[in-house]
Design a protein around this nucleic acid. Structure first.
Lengths: 347, 347
DNA sequence: GTTAGCACTCTATAATTTTGAGTGCTAACA
DNA sequence: TGTTAGCACTCAAAATTATAGAGTGCTAAC
């Protein structure tokens, strides 16, 4: 009996046994262990033969002669693919604990990262939702005092941007009104890409008389809109890394923790993840497959969640390659679902 | 010759030598080293006698018999007090590098933390400025669309808060105008403490007719003002902790890193620091003196910087007890100065 | 008061041995 | 032909022992 992977049923079972056992213990697993652990009723000698084959095929490997076997990246990949294929789990309700203090999205996402971390014992990250094609919903300028104007810009998904603008001379109420009209009629419903320099120039022109002040204001508005680097990333449980000796030994642990602190690389991870679209929105990167080289000794599991308006955010779990994939994937799906629902409810 | 500390001049010099040497090497320092290192021209035997005295007085201690001496917390304290007394250094200009991308305060503070970390090789944190007595400068409600109102509240120091409020029925322009008038005339110039439930009740009363909608709005406004937990803390270089074996050995390193990630404890640190007012605004906590127990094996140096309006923020450096205090204090003073100036310029 | 000299202590490092899990191979067996 | 018991061999990790050396405290002499 041979599966689509070209592995006999028995080899498959043995591979599974090796992986499962290694996930639990983190130690290389030997033939005798398998012989007892499984219900195959095979002697250790037979297992040894099979394992030799599996090694030759590249699914497992020996850290050194006369040690047991550990799964290779290829072995993990086979295992994960298998898990992913399994029919959608029934999605139980996520811990209520998340809803406790979650009145603001920020709080909610922080909480999500924290819950996930304590739930899985791995390092986690959650990014705030982003959208390349945000639309402007509302713009308003108001005088705060004689020398300052505040610009309030509401984008689709109720993302709010503010900008304080210094002006030399106060704008009259009338001018302010005109300007607001102009901005709203021109820009409302536009996506950020659509607002180019040409359009801005035209706006300035139309703004007319006070264009010196006004162009200043417009620049500021354009500036406020442009600032697209406001994707926040919340992390939790980075120190969980230390729970896995194979990661905490060398200084790669430090690099990972550092990546979590500086967040630059996580941003990269999010971007890449959002780019690769697939049906479930869940992706597993094993070892070298990762988009972030710092994590080449880890496995990274990411999931995409959606708000309305095409806003998308990312959840990520970073852990050792011997991650409890089954549990992680289940948790991911749950959280993904929860977030989806929560945000859609709010729409 | 005896100083105010009750230590002979010679003992003082030896203590200094021990500390300096230990700061550099991190190894216990022996009598022979001191004998050569200093210009005292004393034999190691004499040094030994003096060191025995210093140990009895509690300024230095032996990790184990037949090891050299290391400074005790008390020893560090003496040393640091001495440094603090020194006349203000001439404050050279801080690296321009900080100003590069610093168009927003957030960016600037992040950058500050980063610069400080790379400059000192310790872990650093910078908190956004806070003020318990923020005053309301400007309030405005506007309709975003038929069902949503946005409240914009500008506080002293140009801190801006936004809140989106769902309403069942649109507010008429007239009502909106009335409401804005009411809010501004009543609340402008008030500090947050002054706005109590009584005042809010009175406001609602005055709001009159549409009080069902309006009270909803007012609640939201009150809510937005209340949210005072928006102090952000930016950290950098947490992994520098690993550079000091005495910290990275035990799991206390993990706790520290974790504190840096979760930030809860740092908030505590900031609060405590701001509470203790002193002339220079710089404080050094050695070992157990720290307000945050997690860092009891470290030294923590904090400085307060000021915006106008009584807004204050905190800079912190966390490192091993054998921190290069001289350099750190100098850097702190510089950065403190830079931030002070930068913000005051903006006022 | 200072110093040379010396015995003693104790850690850290290196060198060595022991242990045991695990393998590969061979020969026997069903 | 596939499975298994048996055995010699390997190698990392743990335990043990030996060695080196930095540093001290004390004493006696200067």
């Amino acid at each position: 009996m041979v599966t689509e992977h070209g592995l006999s049923d028995r080899k498959m079972k043995i591979l599974h046994a090796v992986i499962k056992n290694y996930l639990e213990t983190g130690e290389p697993v030997g033939s005798r262990t398998i012989s007892k652990y499984t219900d195959l009723n095979l002697s250790s000698a037979t297992i040894r033969n099979e394992m030799a084959d599996l090694e030759e095929l590249g699914y497992i490997l020996q850290p050194h002669t006369s040690a047991g076997r550990i799964p290779s990246d290829k072995g993990y990949r086979l295992y994960v693919d298998m898990l992913m294929e399994e029919k959608e789990q029934e999605l139980s309700e996520m811990q209520e604990q998340m809803l406790d203090k979650a009145d603001k999205m920020e709080q909610l996402l922080k909480q999500a990262a924290r819950v996930l971390a304590s739930n899985t014992n791995y390092a986690t990250m959650v990014s705030t939702p982003m959208n390349n094609s945000k639309k402007i919903k509302f713009i308003q300028l108001s005088m705060v005092d004689a020398e300052q104007v505040i610009a309030v810009i509401v984008l689709g998904g109720n993302v709010i941007k503010n900008k304080i603008i210094d002006v030399e001379e106060p704008l009259s109420n009338e001018n302010l009104l005109k300007l607001n009209m102009l901005l709203n009629t021109t820009l409302n419903g536009m996506s950020i890409e659509e607002i180019n320099l040409g359009l801005i120039a035209r706006l300035k022109e139309q703004a007319g008389i006070h264009s010196s002040v006004i162009s200043n204001v417009l620049d500021a508005v354009a500036d406020a809109i442009q600032i697209e680097e406001d994707m926040q990333i919340y992390t939790s449980g980075a120190t969980n890394i230390f729970k896995y000796p194979e990661l905490s030994d060398n200084q790669s642990a430090q690099e990972i923790i550092n990546a979590f602190e500086e967040k630059q690389q996580l941003t990269e991870l999010v971007t890449q993840t959002l780019a690769k679209e697939d049906n479930t929105g869940i992706q597993v990167y094993i070892g070298d497959e990762t988009p972030v080289q710092t994590m080449k000794d880890c496995s990274v599991v990411t999931a995409t969640y959606e708000l309305g308006d095409g806003m998308k955010g990312t959840i990520g779990i970073i852990g050792p390659k011997r991650m409890d994939y089954e549990h992680v994937l289940k948790s991911m799906k749950r959280l993904q679902n929860e977030l989806d629902q929560m945000f859609h409810k709010k729409e």
